[in-house]
Write a protein that binds this DNA or RNA. Structure first.
Length: 198
DNA sequence: CCATTAATAGGCG
DNA sequence: CGCCTATTAATGG
C-alpha cells in the first residue's frame, strides 16, 4: 500500500478530479483524512433514531464519494451509511468548504460544471428505475456493467439481496427474473458470475 | 461440525 | 409484483 496522499485522495472525487493542483491544496486545508471504520460499524446515521427497512441506495466502491450533498445543504442526516468492509474515510467540513467557495470563484465554477455532468448520469439511472419493469431493469443494469468493464463476463460484487435492494426489487423477484432472463437466452448465470449475451 | 445468513421455491393476494 | 413461509446452499467460527 502506498502512503495516503490527501491531494490524491481528493482527486478521486468526481467533483474535484479536474481541479488544478493549487485549488486542490486549498481543499486539503479544510479536510480530514484516513479515519478508519471497521467492518460493520456505522459511519453515519439519522439523528432521529428509529429505522425502517434497509434499502441499498448506492454502493460506493473504493475511492468513491458519498454524501457530497452535505457540502451544500444544511440538513440532518437522512440515511445510514454502514461499512460493509473495513473502510477508510476522508471528509470535508461543510462550513469550511462553503467559506472556501466564497473565497475561490474558480473553484465554484469548476464544481458547477461537474455537477452538470452528474445530472446527466442521474437522469439515466432515474429513467431506468421508473420506466422499466423488474426484468428490464436487471438486464439494463447488467448491460451497463458489461459496458463499463468491456466484457461479457460480469461478476456481482454484492450479495444478490443487496443488489436487489439497489434495483428496487425483492430478492425473490430478482432470483426469479434472473432465471427468466436465462430462459430467454439473454444471460447465463453461474453463481456470482453472469455472462451477458449482447 | 453447528449456527447464522443468503439464495431459491412455492403459494397467495 | 411484493410479502410470507419453507427448504436448501453457502459462509463463518
Amino acid at each position: 500500500m502506498t502512503k495516503h496522499s490527501p491531494v490524491a485522495c481528493l482527486s478521486k472525487a468526481a467533483l474535484f478530479t479536474d481541479l488544478p493542483i493549487d485549488l486542490k491544496k486549498k481543499l486539503v486545508a479544510v479536510s480530514t483524512h484516513q479515519q478508519k471504520f471497521p467492518k460493520g460499524s456505522i459511519i453515519r446515521q439519522p439523528d432521529d433514531g428509529k429505522d425502517g427497512k434497509e434499502v441499498v441506495l448506492g454502493i460506493p466502491q473504493k475511492g468513491d464519494i458519498e454524501g457530497q450533498q452535505h457540502l451544500f445543504k444544511q440538513s440532518e442526516n437522512e440515511n445510514f451509511v454502514e461499512a460493509v468492509e473495513d473502510t477508510w474515510v476522508c471528509s470535508i467540513n461543510r462550513a469550511d468548504f462553503q467559506k472556501l467557495l466564497q473565497k475561490t470563484p474558480d473553484l465554484s465554477l469548476k464544481l458547477l460544471n461537474n455537477f452538470g455532468k452528474k445530472l446527466v448520469a442521474i437522469e439515466h439511472n432515474s429513467v431506468l428505475r421508473n420506466t422499466l419493469d423488474a426484468k428490464e431493469r436487471i438486464l439494463a443494469y447488467l448491460n451497463d456493467l458489461a459496458n463499463e468493464q468491456g466484457k461479457n463476463e460480469v461478476k456481482l460484487e454484492l450479495k444478490k439481496k443487496d443488489l436487489a435492494s439497489y434495483l428496487g426489487i425483492t430478492p425473490e423477484t430478482f432470483s426469479r427474473k434472473l432465471k427468466e432472463l436465462e430462459k430467454d437466452g439473454k444471460i447465463e448465470v453461474h453463481g456470482r458470475w453472469i455472462n451477458v449475451k449482447r
